[in-house]
Design a protein around this nucleic acid. Structure first.
Lengths: 349, 349
DNA sequence: CTTAAAAATGTTATCGGTAACATTATTTTC
DNA sequence: GAAAATAATGTTACCGATAACATTTTTAAG
């Protein structure tokens, strides 16, 4: 690779000092037009681009924020990442994604790397971590000395940082009430169960909603599973095959849309027709929801808006030194046809 | 934020020189055990992490490669990104994703940023760019002076760099032959048409396959569209509504799985039953393919493997100074049920 | 035409590491 | 026990920018 021109080369060739070159680069006003043009010509001639390492070293900042998330294979995280990238860009920053494994501790090495690379801030996202097992609090404790941190995840125990999250109570209430309003009485939940120490408490919230409506909270109506489509299949199979047909639920709420996808397949395979024999609701409003058969009713957590707030608050926190606080984003039910209703967009309190 | 400890602080406190600290950091053998331990204690006490900016500046490399791609909203690119991240990590590098807009020119500002940030290499990915309009050749010309470049995209005109691509002829041949073998004679193609100056030539290849098999290459059998599910819907509607029912194709090949998703919905909406009334084939083997109804037969381009090669070749190119060459990855047909066949996995020559 | 004020430019310490080279301490060898 | 070899550590120039401060040039004021 070629030897790069440095600011000294440019200064020498333009017959000025490096300070003047810096001024031209920064668009500083106190440079004579003639000088500016002369320097600019040399810059252009060499296609000179100043070294970010050198600048960062001197300035003590990198104009870069880190996003730490589980694999972007999951479309939800794809949306988070995209929103972060765009918002950062709009604020004159770059976003850098660091992937972690969903259910493993955050590697110490990664935390070090974020500090080494002098990130101007970090966003941790991940709705389904168990904060205990991932060691988020410890990572946070270390990072907070060096950079502001914002999390996009359930407001779990004593995370001493800015926390953006969605209304996870509504996230359970909306679908339960929707099904209830449509006449369903036996409602089940698949995935991300309470037994997994799920900080989002989706399972617990689900149960509470059932109780609030005097519906049966039969333990057979919620089963553990992974978070992908195949888990959805398995969960449905496991639940229904263990249950006398007369006790089958009439509606199923899935932890996310992928699981709903799998559930739909399994239900059809068992000979049920949807939505008449079984209603189903997903979560996340993924791109494929309008294209399932029947189109999937789901909950939208508005990850883009949450992420946008996260980036803004992060950048604000750099200056303000603001303490910990949390911000909640409401959830919306997106009604399609998988519950038999065809009402367009609608919110339930 | 806190003042960070520097290598000088550590050296002073440990009563050694900075060189010794550097040696301890690098695990250099010629440090007495006692000294090493003493220094390490101070390092640990301060949780000292050396500045990457300073190191990069001195070393002239960043241990970072850039991936430049259209939005990762598209699951295909998600897979590319993931594979790149993993492979880079396995090689001791970090991967940094930079997003661009699919059909707009690569911003000059982005190219500059890659140079400024002293990336150790760049991978451009994107199957569907028109290289002319994106200005890839120009970007490449500028970048190649500073870092090795690898593209994962159709081997378009005179890209003077390492180019990894999939067998795009097979990508058209496989589905056409599959349908032909199942008895289909009127076969249509939706999306990414030749009129768009598509460097992947999927449309052209499709036509050639038809001709090779003496099948009708009626222009009504291929329609332009975008690349998402909605485009698939529209494309099918447009094609079929413009065609006398007796001339309808019996099989449709979609540019990608999302389009196939839309096509399926539209076909069902028109009252057709799949696969008996219409066969359909997608491309990319996305996660949702097994979950469409019927499960979608598709082509797998093996993006993960391609990307892995891309990263390896890129890192190799740093040392070897190797010239331009290209590497092709074969495509596989993944047979499910959307064409009426249920054969499991199978390849067609 | 001075002189003060303002504008333009230059000088240089600094950011935090690395590593070549120099120096000092410790062994080894005879 | 002195010289030579080796091990351990220190000194310092350098990487390529930035910006505070100093200096020179130009303009304005009297």
């Amino acid at each position: 690779m070629e030897k790069r021109a440095t600011i000294y080369d440019i200064a020498r060739e333009a017959g000025v000092s490096t300070a003047t070159v810096t001024r031209v680069l920064a668009g500083h006003p106190s440079v004579k037009t003639a000088t500016r043009e002369k320097v600019q010509r040399v810059i252009d001639a060499h296609a000179y681009t100043p070294s970010a390492s050198a600048r960062d070293l001197e300035r003590g900042q990198t104009k870069t924020i880190a996003i730490v998330m589980p694999a972007v294979i999951n479309p939800y995280f794809t949306r988070v990442y995209n929103a972060a990238y765009r918002e950062a860009e709009a604020c004159g920053y770059y976003a850098w994604l660091f992937q972690i494994e969903e259910h493993k501790p955050i590697p110490r090495e990664l935390v070090d790397e974020l500090i080494r690379r002098r990130m101007d801030g970090v966003i941790f996202a991940g709705g389904i971590w168990s904060t205990q097992r991932t060691g988020l609090p410890e990572a946070l404790e270390r990072l907070r000395h060096y950079m502001p941190v914002v999390t996009i995840c359930p407001p779990a125990v004593d995370l001493d940082c800015i926390c953006i999250h969605s209304d996870l109570v509504a996230c359970s209430r909306l679908p339960v009430r929707h099904l209830h309003a449509l006449g369903h009485r036996r409602i089940a939940f698949i995935g991300g169960s309470m037994r997994l120490n799920d900080p989002s408490k989706r399972g617990e919230n689900f149960l509470e909603e059932l109780r609030a409506l005097d519906l049966p909270d039969d333990p057979a109506y919620h089963v553990d599973a992974g978070f992908d489509a195949e888990s959805g299949e398995r969960a449905v199979l496991r639940m229904l095959s263990g249950l006398d047909r007369r006790r089958w639920p009439t509606g199923i709420i899935a932890f996310n849309d992928q699981m709903a996808l799998g559930a739909i397949k399994q239900l059809k395979q068992m000979g049920l027709s949807l939505p008449s024999d079984m209603a189903i609701i997903g979560c996340d409003n993924q791109f494929f929801c309008p294209y399932t058969d029947p189109p999937l009713t789901t909950v939208d957590l508005h990850p883009e808006e949450m992420t946008q707030s996260a980036v803004r608050e992060l950048l604000l926190a750099r200056d303000n030194q603001a303490g910990a606080f949390s911000l909640m984003r409401e959830a919306s039910l997106i009604v399609r046809e998988s519950c038999g209703a065809k009402l367009g967009y609608r919110k339930l309190g």
